[in-house]
Amino acid sequence: MSPRLEIKTEFIQSEKSGVSLIEDIWQTPATYLISRLGRPPQVRLIGDRYYPEYLQTIVVLEDDPEELLDKIFSIEVEMRKKFKNINFDLRVCVITSEEEIEKMRQGLLIRYERV
């Protein structure tokens, strides 16, 4: 049985928070990544963390098969073009410990989570 997936769609509508109005919806690099990536089973969560100087988009994977990394880094190239006015850092981490995943959630605005 495939895992149940959930996409959270809250958007912060503030340019200071590092989001931009594109195609009539508010998108962040994380929401763009979600829309392009689909729902690979290895993706545990995707979220944004806001720092004063930049936005960090965090992808937590439970495993990192080559095809998945290739796809994520291909989408990152698109993200660099699409969000060229936003300072963002894409962090792709492989974490399997529930405890560590929980720590990673702290301060993260979750955009996608495999429930």
């Binding site: 990394l69 290739d70 880094f73 291909s74 990152e76 190239v77 660099r80 962090r91 792709v92 981490c93 492989v94 974490i95 560590e100």
Partner: peptide
């Protein structure tokens, strides 16, 4: 990301970088 002659190494470099961040920070 701004130099065409380096496009071919973006993905390999990024995998190395993210794995290294996992090593150092996680």
């Amino acid at each position: 990301y701004t130099r065409k002659e380096l496009f071919q190494i973006i993905k390999p470099y990024r995998h190395l970088e993210e794995a290294s961040r996992d090593a150092r920070y996680e």
